[in-house]
Design a protein around this nucleic acid. Structure first.
Lengths: 199, 199, 199, 199
DNA sequence: AATGAATGAGGATTCATTCAT
DNA sequence: GATGAATGAATCCTCATTCAT
């Protein structure tokens, strides 16, 4: 046994290396959509198909299942960071951005507090890194004296996010947003306008 | 000298109909343990193996994947019902039982507000039924004027449970209990002793 | 994502557990033939196909690639053991049996001195065991004073076998037998009739 | 200010035609090392990577898998030829060179008597050519009356080489050399110093 | 009623080979 | 000429599900 391929006939066109960046973006976008519908365990082949690329391209860009999930999450976290770094950023404002992402992407945050306990996501370096970046951004705009900033309960901030995130279910972004807002309200936390961060 | 044609190796003995009930229980127990370790997507074969029965028995008792998950959940819900029906039951007391189950079984509740949005559990009749029974029990001991019983926010009760449940992560029951209690505290809800219901 | 099967239509008949032993034998036979043609790296799927069973059956009987290779080899080794254990067995006679197996199965012996150095066969417990059994049988009928039994060169016996085995190439059993006999002759070792062991 | 449209990221520099010969040599060297570790079935991509060139370069120089293997072998054969052509060359001396190559490169010789029977190397023109050159060199210094030069057994020479080669296994060159020498000894053939040919 | 083997579709992953740049 | 991304077929392996015994 030496090989196993059959180059065969004609190929559907090799769009060349130029396509690399575009392919990566397409894969992340596809993954986001697939995750929204099928969850994090969705077949990778479906992601490649939706992105319109071959299976191999997916593996070239993302060596394993977690890599692509992290890439999806990374985009969310970056938006939150930008919102938090923005001049005049307020805690409520940033929470609005967070809430928007929660509503858009069922997978978001779920990843952040993933612990592998139930075998889902083997928290690895990147996930941990993202989680820290997310927390740092949020904590950065926490006003003095805010109840989530109590010195003797340092976990409360992320716990609250986890609670809201855990309550976010529903088939549509609208329904998820509604539930997220209700959850923040139950916690007595004020949230700004729910919207993506626009520079 | 029982049969003289094909001794047929040796079967582990067909323990007869009497074993049926025992098998069912063994399967549910096995499923609970497997779920705790491997999550809800664990191979069904592993459940049968741990229960010490053949694959066929699993299918005899539970037609599909959800059926066994529901059976596991059913036991949890029944305990909550019993706690709620108990004489002198208090809301805080029942929440203590709920919290105990949350801490024990990562799967619990997660199932209750599963909506299929993330592809996990195709909410079907049984799950819906369990959810209703759970909610009815809880609401039944909600004292007048409790903040989770506001007439204009009927969803708040289950939303709060979902929030706490969503925050419950961690490798050990102890850690999960700790987080659950912290979550109830953040919500300002008083919880009684965390323990299983003992008739 | 929960499942991934589509039981679909009608199945090609489940021949039932009775087929188990037959299937195992068919797999070993198929593997032997496939190995002869395509080498040890031949696709496992081909073995299953030739045996007329599903892929899963192969994996049920043989957990990994080495397991089936060992099973093939085991049959060869057993014949050699029987030949050696036979009353009136002579060294030359046993070598005749060994030579017959060498000529029949290109894979045989190759496995015995596999060392994984070139990444082929990860010598594992079973392979080691087979190798020992083979050597023990051979050494058992080595006459006193035979040049392969020199006390100060204990490796010579297996080395000689490896040399002959290494020289055995060729498309047909006849050609391989011819070369094997020529090799023994070069070594100055007398070999009995080349034939399988018949009890 | 060389081009102003698409700077096109940054290519690792096209080192121009002059690099071609160097690339070829690097590929052969890389292949030799890879083969030693991973065997002849090692991924071609690994060879290109180790050589520090793109995949395309490999295909430019070597149209197929066998081509590169042959190129590796060619270097070995050339050394043997040089040793044989050297003034005052002796059969034992050339065998020393052969033995050195056997010990260094597990792949060597294995290729020479490859016959495709075991699916490894589809003996093709080049391999056949190399085999002939190798045999011619060896036979050229065979002294009259040497037992490997018997007129009625013309195959004995290459058969002996194949036998020794087949016995050469082991993780280190030292171990392989030890076994090779033991094999020659069993054959009663005298071998000169084991070393590469130095002009 | 239980057992556990068989089935085979599905998903993961690897790599030989092509080809735009 | 070189680069290395893209392609996708092939293979591996797992499991849900059926069913002979």
């Amino acid at each position: 046994m030496t090989q196993h391929t059959t180059p065969d006939e004609r190929r559907p066109a090799n769009r060349g290396p130029k396509a690399a960046a575009g392919n990566r973006a397409a894969l992340v976008a596809a993954a986001r959509e697939i995750y929204a519908v099928h969850g994090l365990d969705a077949p990778l082949s479906g992601i490649a198909r939706r992105a319109g690329v071959g299976q191999g391209v997916l593996y070239r860009h993302f060596p394993d299942r977690d890599a692509i999930a992290s890439a999806v999450l990374e985009e969310n976290v970056r938006q939150v960071e930008q919102a938090a770094d923005d001049e005049g950023a307020t805690f409520a404002g940033v929470l609005g951005v967070v809430t928007w992402h929660l509503a858009q992407s069922a997978a978001f945050i779920g990843l952040l507090h993933a612990d592998g306990a139930n075998g889902r996501f083997r928290a690895h370096a990147l996930a941990g890194d993202l989680s820290e970046r997310f927390e740092r951004s949020l904590r950065g705009c926490l006003p003095d004296g805010h109840r989530l900033g109590a010195a003797d309960a340092p976990d409360d901030l992320m716990l609250a996010v986890a609670m809201v995130s855990g309550a976010v279910t529903g088939p549509t972004p609208e329904e998820r947003e509604r539930r997220a807002l209700a959850a923040w309200r139950l916690l007595g936390i004020t949230v700004g306008p729910v919207a993506p961060f626009k520079g």
